[in-house]
Design a protein around this nucleic acid. Structure first.
Lengths: 357, 357
DNA sequence: GTGAAAGCGCTAACAT
DNA sequence: ATGTTAGCGCTTTCAC
């Protein structure tokens, strides 16, 4: 393949045209696979393309077309495994269909989320995959509606009256966690979480509570929730355990509805010198690679990232291609991995080390 | 702010022009801050903009300008905290200067890396931040050179003859780790890592080895390296420890040059029932949030993500603005966090639990 | 089959 | 101070 000289103007479609002795329109036709071009000419175009190292400018191309082949993705953050994998998956899927994914992170701010969305609208993106900071009622989704943008909502959302949604089946997964914990004999459990505004977090809480109480009506469920920020949660949790310890009625297990909650809980256990599962059991929503190499390994709910991503893209492209109909709401099943951080309450009470179970 | 009707064609600059009773050129001037416009007309333009909810189409705008205000970022992956934070930082910095960041992940493949770069070239990006999969000699960097693209190389690179580079000061950090480990009394240390092709990984190894041997000439340093993939490393490590255990001369500490190596090492320790720091000490290059909540907390080298990102962007924009001169090579200092996973060898030999130190 | 012409939405010269 | 003209690189009628 011929390499052009450095720092030279890139060849345009006209350069190819003159090299091939045809018009720009013909070049465009050849490159877009129109079959009505004389084979001989087509070959000459291809040769010229090869010779010059010509490549279509996708932006100029989109300029003239109706819709631009760009998909926007907005995630609350890029730092966690979950959203990192999500972006990675979405990128691959967009690419497969000849689209480019432009990703941006709202950094857990609804204001920023809306700003990004406005910028994507400026870009005339064909569609948007939005993982909203809070839920489907934020200003960002409102903006999308008001401007007739096409998009899918994922993750912190269960259903919407304007957009298709795809998320993990939080309630079912939480019910499974409840069954496991009740089965181990736990009758006093703390649920911690961030972002009670998110429909999914509420679903996680309710799914857990309903099943747990159904299986064990004498169950005591404490809840420590706070909106969005980690530091307040840390304080709340500390106070909670101090009070419970004073009253000598601390829970035997913790279920965290959010990855960050799991980290905060672990950190608090450390501070108090508690080890899982002897002193307390722990299950977290959201899995991470490290959870299986620590001692004990941390039990977790694994969200089906690939499934969420591929379903989101599928439904998005259907809309982009003009398919009508009412918004759909998909729930993808999770896997619950019961690892060493969960045991029976009081089985080896208050022992020191984080021994193997 | 006036909201336009859903599904309506977005207003163009001509719509604004006719509403304001001026020409499109004048609108453009007002919006780009040219001051030679009569204040009264400027106001009418602004009013029309407000009324119609007009926003400039950045692509059409870039089309006519010389350079496009797009920065490309290529990371080996999005799943790890390090690269996630990096993208997040870069995104913010690009945005600050009115540029849009388009990020893509090479998924640890040099072929994909080059393809992405070609696509970004098609997009006529103003510049690229490339975190190469292996090192500065890969096909991607070659492509950038051959096509006269402007860019910065970060992370797995120390210096280059064509591009500016910014990375963590691996050698200095490793030297510090060596001092700490030698100081604790370790005289037999295993270094594990992936990607020995990366200049940085070699720098990490050499920085460690040189300092360690200087401080303790009787030091024994074993090395288990393998290229790029995790699974072979797992096998290698297993075999290594089996052999060492049979010979009864296993190392008292492990230094991992890569996050994934740290995970593999921990996993192997688990398998063997070893606890840090009693059975073996562990330090890893690359910090992660979970490392401070596990028991024991894992000692780690913290890379200065923000500094790398901001220096990379700074130097990139200087090149974009046409600044000449030979390529620069920046090295940003790391912080070394000595946590509980490091102790003195044999201090509490072969005890069971992962007790607090 | 093919090319000329007309833009997509914008901005930079150049007139006025 | 403002409008006119001429594109950026491409695609798409629509004649020929």
């Amino acid at each position: 393949m011929a390499q052009q000289e450095s720092h030279q103007r890139r060849p345009s479609i006209h350069d190819v045209a003159s090299h091939a002795g045809v018009s720009a329109a013909t070049v465009s036709k050849v490159l877009s696979g129109v079959t009505t071009v004389k084979p001989e000419n087509a070959q000459r175009v291809l040769d010229a393309v090869e010779l010059l190292g010509y490549r279509v400018d996708p932006l100029a191309s989109d300029m003239r077309r109706a819709k631009r082949r760009i998909i926007g993705a907005i995630m609350p953050e890029f730092e966690s495994e979950f959203f990192g994998q999500m972006v990675s998956e979405l990128e691959g899927l967009a690419e497969q269909r000849g689209y480019t994914l432009v990703a941006a992170s709202s950094r857990e701010s609804e204001a920023r989320e809306k700003e990004i969305l406005a910028r994507m609208h400026d870009w005339r993106v064909a569609g948007v995959v939005l993982a909203p900071v809070r839920n489907e009622h934020g200003p960002a989704a409102g903006f999308m509606k008001a401007n007739g943008m096409t998009g899918v909502l994922i993750d912190r959302v269960l259903a919407d009256d304007a957009f298709d949604t795809v998320s993990a089946d939080s309630a079912a997964a939480s019910a499974e966690v409840a069954r496991a914990l009740v089965g181990e004999g736990h009758r006093h459990i703390l649920v911690v979480g961030l972002g009670q505004q998110a429909a999914t977090v509420r679903a996680r809480l309710e799914g857990f509570r309903n099943t747990a109480l159904e299986l064990a009506p004498d169950m005591r469920i404490d809840v420590v929730l706070c909106e969005s920020d980690v530091e307040p949660l840390r304080t709340l949790l500390r106070d909670y355990f101090s009070k419970r310890e004073a009253g000598n009625d601390r829970p035997t297990a913790v279920y965290s509805l959010f990855l960050k909650g799991t980290l905060v809980a672990l950190s608090e256990f450390r501070r108090r010198g508690w080890h899982c599962p002897n002193d307390i059991s722990l299950v977290g929503f959201d899995d991470a690679e490290w959870m299986q190499v620590t001692w004990p390994a941390i039990a977790a709910v694994v969200q089906p990232v690939r499934e969420i991503a591929s379903n989101a893209m599928e439904v998005l492209f259907r809309r982009i291609e003009g398919e009508g109909g009412p918004p759909t709401a998909r729930l993808e099943p999770c896997k619950v991995l019961m690892r060493e951080s969960v045991g029976s309450p009081g089985s080896v009470p208050h022992s020191g080390g984080g021994d193997r179970q």
